[in-house]
Design a protein around this nucleic acid. Structure first.
Length: 462
RNA sequence: UCCCGGGUAGCUCAGCCGGCAGAGCGAGUGGCUGUUAACCACUUUGUCGGGGGUUCGAAUCCCUCCCCGGGAGCCA
């Protein structure tokens, strides 16, 4: 079926041409002499105005053209006679693919709350808001690849099913082909996973980092971009059980290199969103007011504030601001502390580096002070932690020592330790939650509104 | 998982000191208009989240479960 995308009509605008467009009706206004249809096909933010004169054969098909109906229209592209739009199509031929009963169709030409739209996840992409979100999401996905590819990073596909359970990144979903009605009993009354599909217990990945490390220690600079699963019972506007994560890993790099990479990366994504999604960003600015073209422009250019954890604690100790949780060296920064730094003190992204080793993962490189590790978090206003990264511990003895101190078993992870035995080198990387990035750029306040099918505890509809 | 707030028409919400279930929007019909989430008039709509209890009588009070939202923790 030949059709012109509405996006292309607006960009090319060949006035006087006969064109065919397909899409879904947003609204219809009828009168005696003429009827107007606002049509959207998902390719762009704006609707195209269709004009149906009463003497056109299309006019008597209008009763089936209610909000939500899928139609094809053909006619002449003209400069609009009315205000509010540049182009319109004078329809000479109209075909209705599928009507949408106006009594039953949940989306009507009125505002709906995001909470309500979450209940109709299969229809919400037809709204202005979700059309915009998913177009921005697409542009950002592509921007991720463009950024890394242009810097010579190699995209690696780390496994979704994994056997490593000691990453400490979160609770895992078990993957099994065992009959859940008849689970084989092991020695101590627990389940005998040696009879399971892989011969041992398997999980959905919580991070591709450990695998990305061995690929970096052979290919140089790599990145992952794929789905990640966490079984934590997290009920917040910033957590999903299934989300997409981006994890670059650089060989021959230290913590400063990875901080710079993180900053360049965010700058680049903001710039790309501005360049390719101006209409969408303008829409978010107008209707939700949590993002703006000007904010993004400065985010795309302004250097991030950088400070050590120790400096951050000093800032937090000095303020008169009252916090619910204590501020003390050695304790992790709470959301309220992070928000104070990003929203009130610096009014922009902040990179905090060199955290106490007691609150960070085993694989992070120990600093010479004996107290801290080369870990960094990028904190952004409203969303909070968007990136967590570190220089990895490349010294075998120190890594083993740390694992022993933390009571982590070494036997299943000898392959990871091998990287420190054979040709070990400094390397560093970070993890970025893609949905949080989409949230940050669109200003959507709930993470469930930036992914088509959000998975969360007790929630797997659609 | 914890702390708050909420669940009443298709949607947003009022009613909650117990006594006939309401408004706006939407939708429908008619009118009018090169219209812009058009406008005007009329019409339409209920398992008051589920279950149990108190009471002559419960949307309203009590218990319980479920679901949703905000915040917190865990994290990206």
């Amino acid at each position: 079926m030949k059709r012109t995308r509405i996006k292309n009509i607006f960009s090319e605008g060949n006035i006087g041409q006969t064109i065919t467009i397909c899409g879904w009706v947003r609204s219809k206004r009828e009168s005696k002499g003429v009827a107007f249809i606002a049509l959207n096909d998902g390719s762009t933010q704006d609707t195209l105005q269709l004009v149906v004169p009463s003497d056109s054969s299309a006019f008597n098909k209008l009763s089936g053209c209610n909000t939500g109906a899928a139609i094809r229209a053909a006619g002449l592209l003209k400069e609009s006679l009315g205000k509010g739009q540049k182009y319109e199509v004078e329809v000479s031929d109209l075909e209705i693919f599928g009507e949408a009963d106006s009594e039953a169709y949940p989306l009507q030409k009125k505002g709906h709350t995001l909470e309500f739209l979450r209940e109709i996840g299969h229809l919400r992409p037809r709204t202005n808001t979700f059309g915009a979100v998913f177009r921005v999401r697409n542009v950002l996905s592509n921007a991720v690849h463009e950024f890394f590819q242009s810097r010579g990073f190699i995209w690696v596909h780390t496994p979704i099913i994994t056997a490593s359970d000691c990453e400490g990144a979160g609770d895992l979903f078990t993957v099994t082909s065992l009959d859940l009605e008849k689970l084989p009993a092991g020695n101590n009354g627990d389940i005998d996973f040696s009879q399971d599909f892989f011969g041992k217990r398997a999980y959905l990945t919580v991070s591709g980092q450990l695998e990305a490390e061995f690929l970096a220690m052979s290919l140089g600079d790599v990145y992952t971009f794929g789905p990640t699963f966490r079984a934590e019972n997290s009920n917040t506007s910033r957590h999903l059980s299934e989300f997409w994560m981006i994890e670059p890993e650089m060989a021959f790099a230290d913590i400063n290199d990875v901080m710079q990479l993180a900053e360049d990366f965010i700058h680049s994504l903001c710039g790309m969103a501005l360049e390719k999604c101006e209409d969408e960003i303008a829409f978010f600015e107008k209707f939700y007011k949590n993002t703006s073209i000007n904010d993004l422009r400065s985010l795309a250019e302004k250097p991030f504030v950088r400070m050590t954890y120790t400096e951050a604690i000093k800032v937090l100790e000095k303020t008169k601001e009252k916090f619910e949780f204590p501020v003390k060296w050695g304790l992790d920064l709470q959301s309220e502390h992070e928000r104070y730094l990003t929203d009130k003190v610096f009014k922009g992204p902040v990179i905090v580096v060199d955290y106490p080793k007691g609150i960070k993962a085993f694989y992070m490189r120990q600093n010479t002070d004996g107290k801290t590790v080369a870990a960094m978090d990028v904190l952004v206003p409203k969303v909070g932690e968007i990136i967590g990264g570190s220089q990895r511990e490349e010294r075998l003895e120190l890594l083993e020592g740390r694992m022993n101190d933390m009571g982590l078993p070494l036997e299943n992870i000898q392959w990871y330790l091998d990287l420190r035995r054979y040709g070990s080198a400094p390397h560093a990387g970070f993890g970025l939650g893609f949905e949080r990035m989409v949230q940050y750029i669109t200003g959507m306040s709930n993470i469930r509104d930036v992914i088509p099918c959000p998975r969360a505890p007790q929630s797997i509809k659609f």
